[in-house]
């Protein structure tokens, strides 16, 4: 554990909490892609199948459970409790375009062709593209509420911090995981355009609005 990894985890947690609070306090999930949230829930389930077989630390186990519960809570709020506010007309990204390639790739490129390992790999590939339905939704409507952009910024920061963590671990521990790193870089790159808009607009008090 290093400071970059910890900051990344905290940024991830903050992102998840921002989203839950936004939905809970506004009693609405307008502007949020339910499809991205389903993908994140699937990601956590596939990755944390090792919750009971691979003990790392109390910290790891607790965080895994928190991420799982929070992602299921978000999906529940969107598809059950505040279903009426869910903007499904704009949430039209086809999930099979992400899930099927992630399944195929995890069967071909993995560290070990074993069930738990393939699920872990699938979760890594799926997470790297899970935000696409949300970014697609923002581009479709041409704007995002500032709270939604704070959520995306926290989520993107988590990925960027993990890259710094991997660089640190490579030099300090000789540790690297090619699959996690390459997928992580892909995932972070997807946020770059958004980061640019966030810094040039949202931080200056403007609404995140895409150029027409």
């Amino acid at each position: 554990m290093n400071v970059f990894r910890l900051s990344g985890d905290v940024a991830h947690l903050i992102a998840i909490i921002i989203l839950l609070l936004k939905i809970w306090t506004s009693r609405s999930c307008a502007g949020i892609s339910g499809k991205s949230q389903i993908l994140f829930a699937v990601t956590f389930v596939a990755r944390y199948l090792d919750l009971f077989t691979n003990y790392v630390s109390i910290y790891n186990s607790v965080m895994k459970i928190v991420y799982l519960l929070a992602s299921f809570g978000t999906v529940y709020l969107m598809y059950m409790k505040f279903k009426a506010t869910y903007d499904h007309n704009h949430d039209t990204f086809r999930l099979e375009f992400l899930i099927l390639p992630a399944i195929a790739l995890s069967l071909i490129i993995n560290h070990d062709f074993a069930v738990i390992e393939v699920f872990w790999t699938f979760s890594i590939y799926l997470e790297s593209v899970a935000i696409l339905p949300q970014l697609f939704m923002v581009s479709k409507t041409g704007e995002a509420e500032s709270i939604t952009s704070h959520y995306l910024f926290a989520l993107g920061s988590y990925r960027a911090l993990y890259i710094v963590n991997w660089i640190y671990r490579y030099y300090m521990e000789g540790f690297y995981d090619m699959i996690a790193t390459l997928a992580g870089i892909v995932q972070t790159v997807l946020y770059c355009d958004f980061f640019y808009l966030y810094i040039t607009k949202v931080l200056k008090g403007k609404k995140l609005q895409l150029p027409a």
Binding site: N60, H111, Y162, G174, F175, Y176, D177
Partner: peptide, 10 residues
Amino acid sequence: ILKSFSHDEL
């Protein structure tokens, strides 16, 4: 593959 997988990250 030098250092392989030991999934200790989240």
